[in-house]
Write a protein that binds this DNA or RNA. Structure first.
Lengths: 347, 347
DNA sequence: TAAGGTCCCGGAAGCGTTTACGTCGGGTAT
DNA sequence: ATACCCGACGTAAACGCTTCCGGGACCTTA
């Protein structure tokens, strides 16, 4: 069942079938509909390879996602949500998603070749180091690239990140509204942009409310659980310990809560805790962790929109970066009154 | 930079280039190496679409993964790990992975068409209902299909599942070895195969050790957290409450631990708990949850191996299903002596 | 009425590969 | 020496589409 068959049965040329199916204006509406319904009836689907070969556009976007990227303990824990967003948005555009393999370290041209091999319409990067030669080479291309949770630039690239700063501010504001004044923070590795932004948001909000903020109230973590526990112990040992802590990552926050409890303090009564990320465990714990959630699904859909935009725009246009809003998820650990039910996290 | 260019520069015909690059036996080893190094030097990569079109094999396998599949509260929480396994194995085979969109409910031929459209080598199914018309239609095809965590059959299909039964037995055995005799269980929805298997494993092991097992010791859950909490409360209210509970899913197990604690019991001193799945939260909690881990990465690689096997085998061969071993992860909730450190779960 | 335009549509040339099939040497068996 | 085979390679026909180019029918406008 190829296009010739449809053409024959429809009594038209293959050119007309192609045009009808692709919604080209050179066919009369009448024949267009006739051919379309005929094709549907016959269960005809154009062959993607042939189409790509002839049109030189594959309708595929590549996902570049490094499994092993852990610099600073970061790995993308929300792959699933991002994928959902990507998939849904791509479907609407009639595009497909292909997972790119990771090329070896020493193969600088690897991704560029892959992109050519599949004649990709664009690629989405996540959890990669933009300074890796192979990635840098790809970004230098005029192929549309959008990076998630990472700021990049190139002739045709854009970024989408969460409003880490705003999220942090919301977290602190929440604590202030609950009456706290001695609010400390545990940071991530501040050489990473998101961690730095979260710290900046904390500082800004603390300053805005003229809260006391001795140096000891800012303790460095690394996004891993143990550093959160250590940080909390340090804070509680202070002569004037904070009554609330904004922890820049949930894994650390969870460990911090436990450290406080092991120290005999009650959360949130003695010390309130707010995290960042809203990982699954945050809703499973008792007390539930109040935290700042990112809209990972929207990461995906935004990426697709940007890809389309980049494809249309002239190269070297001003690099766009869209910042997605975050949402404060209030649970028990911050001390706000809530009914703390288990959320639906199956298995 | 196409194949003609390489042929011209190499002083051979395109046929020879093609054969050399594909490792066909009709070229002398000498020219094969010469062409290969020339191609590498030129940075030539064959166009995937053209190759697929000409050879009628795309070298792509499709991943069918339903975002919204939640029947019985099941969703695949380990997508990431499975993807890693798939990707790595596929790379070794020189194949690519494409994420299939979900077709509308009423489009029974949807997946079959997609497979034809992309001329897929095979498809991997996860988190889908094999009775959905569109999925059933795909399975009925002679296209190689392998289902993960799901038993299917069709002219050319296979399944890979974890050894749920064995895992459950190991969990119970672990508790027995710790001296428990009154061991209860909380099940998943037993119309789902994995849940049924876990229950069967529990029963088998309980019988083997001639443990008391009143009916009340088997309480039904649904894999969601709340059902775990309810089940634990029920068990603790028994005239002769169990001293240990095997909970068939971690989300339920975590909630069960909390329910016990809220009831004034200590875990594991008063009641030991073992879960199943080893979700991230299991290692983040205090006490850490002893649980049965599945090797999801291996799911992926096994799937790829099966796909290759199916492609080679004659259709309607006996449907294979490989069962992957599970591993007991001992943490504090079961009462075994361990150092309970936080695991590395970043952010 | 002739010239020009517009609207539809068909013919056919690609797109970059793979893969029959043919060919041409040089070995081996007869 | 003839016949034969086999290994190595070239020629060219697909593979299933898109799209450029052009042409006929019909309508405007002068």
């Amino acid at each position: 069942m190829d296009i010739n068959e449809v053409a024959r049965l429809g009594g038209v040329s293959v050119a007309t079938v192609s045009r009808a199916l692709n919604g080209r204006p050179e066919v009369s509406p009448a024949t267009r509909e006739r051919i379309r319904s005929l094709a549907a009836e016959l269960g005809y689907t154009p062959n993607a390879s042939a189409r790509a070969l002839a049109s030189r556009r594959s309708g595929m976007v590549g996902l570049l996602w490094d499994t092993d990227y852990r610099s600073g303990g970061r790995q993308h824990p929300f792959l699933q949500e991002v994928l959902v967003g990507l998939k849904e948005a791509l479907n609407e555009h009639g595009q497909g998603l292909i997972l790119l393999p990771i090329v070896p370290e020493d193969d600088a041209g690897g991704y560029v070749r892959l992109a050519r091999q599949y004649t990709l319409d664009g690629v989405v990067l996540m959890g990669v180091d933009e300074h890796t030669p192979s990635v840098a080479a790809l970004l230098a291309t005029d192929l549309p690239c959008v990076a998630l949770d990472l700021a990049v630039d190139g002739p045709r690239s854009a970024s989408v990140t969460s409003d880490n700063r705003g999220g942090a501010r919301a977290a602190v504001r929440h604590l202030v509204e609950l009456g706290h004044r001695r609010i400390a923070t545990v940071t991530g590795p501040t050489d990473l942009k998101p961690a730095a932004e979260r710290l900046a948001g904390y500082c800004r909000e603390v300053a805005r409310h003229r809260l006391p903020c001795p140096e000891a109230y800012v303790v460095a973590g690394d996004f891993f659980a143990d550093s959160g526990a250590a940080a909390m112990r340090r804070l509680l040992a202070l002569p004037e310990p904070p009554t609330a802590v904004f922890v820049a990552g949930d894994a650390m926050a969870i460990a911090a809560v436990q450290a406080a409890q092991e120290d005999g303090r009650s959360v949130p009564a003695d010390v309130a805790v707010v995290g960042f990320d809203d990982i699954d465990a945050a809703g499973l714990l008792r007390p539930g962790l109040t935290t700042v959630a990112q809209d990972y699904r929207r990461f995906g859909s935004t990426a697709v929109a940007l890809l389309a935009e980049l494809a249309a725009a002239p190269p070297d246009a001003a690099p766009r970066t869209v910042t997605l809003p975050t949402a404060l998820v209030v649970r028990a650990s911050s001390g706000a009154s809530t009914v703390d039910t288990h959320e639906e996290v199956p298995r």
